[in-house]
Design a protein around this nucleic acid. Structure first.
Lengths: 263, 263
DNA sequence: CGGGTGACCGTATGGTGTACGGAGAATATA
DNA sequence: TATATTCTCCGTACACCATACGGTCACCCG
């Protein structure tokens, strides 16, 4: 079985010269309004429907299930017709990312700084839980769509006016959002194993115990053996404890730095 | 062109009953030694050669270039023969990850705590620079191979004996390693754009300026506009400044926490 | 009421992972 | 030594994938 994932198009443009970027126009399609004076026949579907279908497929069956053919099927189209809505798959993924970035309301930015920072991370956490495929996407260059941009602006505002340099602001938000991926991956991976493999991580461990005992012997891995046991036990117990605890520590660190830096 | 990426096999096992896990056995192949008493003809290649070829392909042309057919070509084999060395592509990726985890020597763990923490992050940073495709891989469940395990043990030892709970140790290492991916992605993405697209990020920005000026207007994105400018300027300037600066802050935060926690 | 535009799609190309079964080589066993 | 077993290599095939190209035809504008 193929486990394919797709990079963001990275706003690569089509190198058609002065044409700005079709992806950009697609991302901001609601801002540009309907294309007026189109000659040909009416479109039977819409960009939003295509993107929504893709997101649905990814949510239910994973990012691998997102294929132009399947999208076409769902919409009652033939594969090649999808390309009249979207230039290609990479651009479609951009649109998917921006779409899901916009489906959750951005909470108010009141309260103390630590609480604001926590809100940033928790929103991201929730987004990963709703759309696990986001973790399988190369987010090196997030699409500059309206929802992603709104989200980013919202994050930055949470730490604006504290005397931080622009660079520090960028770094702090990146750090905070990046932190979430770790616990989110661990959590979703454990969940996926319970659901799909029908054997929990514990079962897997038990099945492979004889081999692992031989390999991961306490002489070579004294610390890992001890720590791994604790980490495994907690994965069993709490759902997002690891996330919340790590978050609290991280926020402490960030707040400390802001205090020193703004002095 | 397809931009596929591949998840780790996640040690899924083959559900063949009591058979532990072929992937595990492959990962620890050096530990088990040569298989004695094999009946058929000698193998013309080896698992190590297959994995090395795959890593080379990924290093030079990206993870997409890693295909069973291409590997076979390089080794003078036909595609299906590769499957006599490796069960499948997911398992191959596991082996690739463990291989590159072992190619860099783990430095001594002496010196002050901050220096030790920095060494952990810098090693990871270097590994990402050498093998950018590692960033395109779903590392939710890293393969339990010898090199990955050694690496993990080495990380944990750097913060062992400080009075931290096992759980905290796990979390801190995860946090530190997770942090690296952010700057590494940014850095490599910028580099890739310079090399491949032959237009720097600045050029892209200029080409799309008219559209972006209309969209990302200062009214809607006052903070992003300001911060983005600063972040972009620095991306131009320093190579790993962002990484080093962020690392210093993060370490400060971690050290603070350890001090409080161990009291 | 044409002319032109663009949505839809049939076909095809070149890729992917990998299941299946066969040929033949090399060793273990009788 | 002869036979049985087992394993490597691989030819073929299947089911996908993204997408380039060109044709057909519905529709709007002039």
């Amino acid at each position: 079985m193929v486990y394919g994932e797709y990079r963001l198009s990275g706003m690569a443009g089509e190198s058609t010269g002065s044409e700005p970027d079709r992806t950009l126009r697609l991302l901001w399609r609601s801002h540009f309004g309907e294309p007026v004076g189109s000659r040909g026949p009416k479109q039977r579907s819409s960009v939003d429907e295509v993107v929504a279908t893709a997101v649905q497929l990814a949510d239910v069956d994973g990012i691998d299930a997102v294929s132009m053919r399947r999208i076409a099927d769902r919409l009652g189209l033939k594969p090649m017709s999808v390309y009249t809505y979207v230039p290609g798959k990479a651009e479609l993924v951009d649109l998917m990312v921006d779409r899901v970035a916009g489906e959750m309301e951005l909470p108010r930015l009141d309260g103390e700084l630590p609480e604001r920072l926590a809100r940033i991370a928790r929103l991201q956490w929730e987004e990963y839980l709703r759309h696990p495929w986001l973790l399988s996407i190369d987010t090196s260059r997030p699409p500059l769509g309206p929802n992603v941009s709104d989200h980013w602006e919202w994050c930055l505002r949470a730490i604006d006016g504290l005397g931080l340099s622009d660079l520090d602001m960028d770094r702090i938000v990146t750090l905070l959002l990046g932190f979430v991926t770790g616990p989110a991956r661990a959590h979703l991976d454990a969940e996926r194993h319970r659901a799909v493999d029908q054997e929990s991580a514990v079962d897997w461990w038990e099945r492979n115990e004889p081999l692992l005992d031989e390999i991961l012997d306490a002489k070579r891995y004294p610390v890992s053996a001890r720590v791994g046991q604790a980490a495994g036990a907690v994965e069993q117990a709490g759902p997002s404890d690891v996330f919340e605890f790590g978050l609290a520590r991280l926020i402490d660190g960030i707040v400390d730095y802001i205090g020193v830096s703004a002095r």
